[in-house]
Computed example of a mutant assay.
Amino acid sequence: MRLLRPRGVYAPQEDTELLARAARAELRVLDRLGVDVLDVGTGTGALALLAAESGTARVTAVDISRRAVLAARYNARRRGLRVAVRRGDLVAPADGRRFDLILSNPPYVLAPGRVSAASRTWHAGADGRTVLDRLCADAPALLRDSGVLLLVQSALCGVEQTVRRLADTGLESRVELRTSIPFGPVMARHAAWLEERGLIEPGTRKEELVVIRAQRR
């Protein structure tokens, strides 16, 4: 879909589409009145809009970026979709509520140096887990019984670590979808650094993306 994306707001890419595939399948299973959906780190609102298009979901979207919040609100209004967009850090704006489905495409790119205002939509520290670990710790408490968390990440930042952390909170976790994509400009720029750390083989210019599904039983 064509979306307003101000400068500094994450553009929907292959990871967004992979997570959207998993979300569509989950929403079909959850096809009932009154399902509550939370999109964490909504950016342009692409995933929140997908959920709202079902017509029965009550959708909340959160982002720490003012520009992202304004963009998501505009994109929802433009399509006549009801999405409550809140500004705040990760799940904090939704604290105290419970959801049937939580979606998140968090920053997960491994990169040297400090996170800046310009890089915070993708930069997740030297191990790629700056946001992922917080999400794994905080999001499960917002799930209803049988509620599902879907998140997307690179395999380079530890798939088993994410699965284990979510399992430690009592969720049943597994890899739901996988795909391999060519490095984008950011990953290509840091390829030599990734090679030096032994995270990729010399000359490798592809990464695997995965969607992890975790459910409260």
Rank of each mutant, 00 (worst) to 15 (best):
R79L: 10
G80A: 10
L81K: 04
L81A: 07
L81H: 05
R82W: 15
V83T: 02
A84C: 14
V85T: 07
R86T: 01
R87H: 06
G88Q: 10
G88H: 11
L90A: 00
V91Y: 08
V91C: 09
A94Q: 04
G96H: 12
R98E: 12
R98M: 03
R98V: 12
R98H: 13
D100H: 13
D100S: 14
L101E: 03
I102L: 09
S104P: 01
N105I: 00
N105Y: 10
P107F: 02
Y108L: 11
Y108G: 01
Y108D: 05
L110R: 01
P112W: 01
G113E: 07
G113W: 08
G113L: 04
R114T: 13
V115I: 12
A117K: 11
A117R: 14
A118L: 00
A118F: 04
S119D: 02
S119Q: 08
S119V: 01
R120G: 11
R120C: 12
W122P: 06
A124N: 03
A124C: 09
G125M: 07
A126Y: 06
A126F: 10
D127G: 05
D127V: 03
D127L: 01
G128Q: 03
R129A: 06
R129Y: 01
T130R: 01
V131M: 07
V131R: 11
A137H: 13
A137Y: 09
D138M: 11
A139G: 07
A141H: 13
A141F: 09
L142G: 02
L142D: 02
L143I: 06
L143R: 05
R144E: 06
R144F: 04
D145H: 13
G147T: 00
G147A: 10
G147W: 02
L149N: 06
L151E: 09
V152Y: 10
A155N: 08
A155K: 01
A155M: 07
L156F: 13
C157R: 03
C157W: 10
G158L: 00
E160H: 14
E160V: 11
Q161N: 15
T162C: 12
V163F: 09
R164W: 03
R164F: 04
R165G: 07
L166D: 07
D168Y: 12
L171F: 00
L171Q: 06
L171M: 00
E172C: 14
E172P: 13
R174E: 15
V175G: 07
V175R: 04
V175F: 09
L177K: 00
L177R: 11
T179V: 04
T179A: 03
S180F: 15
I181W: 07
I181Q: 02
P182W: 00
P182L: 06
P182Q: 04
G184D: 08
G184P: 08
G184L: 05
P185V: 15
P185N: 15
P185G: 15
P185R: 15
V186A: 13
V186Q: 13
